[in-house]
Design a protein around this nucleic acid. Structure first.
Lengths: 150, 150
DNA sequence: GGATAATAGTTGATTTTGTAACTAACAACC
DNA sequence: GGTTGTTAGTTACAAAATCAACTATTATCC
């Protein structure tokens, strides 16, 4: 690995480029948790996201989940289908606007959610434990801002 | 959206779950930059990553890129192939160990790299501009730690 | 109230990724 | 020096994500 012969000075450092850095951190930090929902429950990332939205916020429509999770509607459609097949959620058409359906977790889905949630909570604590309390809080704040979640 | 009827208190907040938050921030923060390399150069994420590694560090092997970028070797193999087709890089077999090949950018590849790098630099500055200088530095430090890049 | 547009969600075709098996070259060990 | 194991990289097949077109329902507007 030699430096490229560049006329101007190349002070760019890929390892500090925020989009790259964020991606690396995101991937690394979800690896172990991914193993749990994948190996233990046979779920995809899209599926635990939908499960967690319903578990955490209660009844929602596919549209609402898409907005909060920034997920495309086809992903959600398929994830909802899978979770329905596994009897983790129920859909009931909204009688006021029959285009949309209200999604809720079944007792079985709620049980799985609670188990995963507890694991998630511990996992999050382990990650946050790499920093001081103040740093971790600042990190979350900055990430929320970057994600446009303010 | 009503709260789920949960026996125990559910103090878990998905919006603060670090793996989720990191993913959201990573996706949002790479959106605009993605548009550039996608629309203007018809590149995929895997391809700009390989391009940037070669541009930023100089000659590397596929293996080395995989280690630094945490990308699977099949992804790299395909990205290298695409970049080679577009005459952005050249591969030369290492005569000391003929299993591996040394990858370098062509002048054309270097030109594209420099253009994208300048855009990346501006883009990074814009993102970092959402925070104080100290905060941004702390953010990068924390992300590097989370990514296991220490 | 009938035509046109917009919205929620689904489905099918294409593209991209992930998994496993493979080739070619080298290393280690006896 | 030949067998066994390891490594760099590719390829084939399966799984998943993306994109575009579609249905059904509601809103708009003349």
């Amino acid at each position: 690995m030699t430096q490229p012969d560049s006329a101007e000075k190349d002070d760019f450092d890929l390892r500090n480029f925020l989009p790259f850095l964020l991606n690396q951190a995101a991937e690394e930090s979800s690896l172990d948790f991914q193993k749990v929902y994948k190996n233990r429950y046979g779920m995809l990332r899209t599926e635990w996201r939908v499960l967690f939205h319903l578990g955490n916020y209660g009844e929602m429509t596919a549209k609402q989940i898409g907005e909060r999770a920034k997920m495309h509607k086809t992903k959600i459609s398929r994830a909802v289908h899978k979770l329905e097949q596994r009897r983790y959620l129920r859909r009931t058409r909204d009688e006021n606007d029959r285009r949309m359906e209200r999604l809720t977790l079944t007792p079985a889905g709620l049980t799985v959610y609670r188990e995963l949630r507890d694991i998630a909570r511990d996992y999050d604590a382990r990650l946050a434990g790499m920093f001081t309390t103040g740093e971790a809080a600042l990190l979350r704040m900055m990430l929320r801002r970057l994600a446009g979640m303010d």
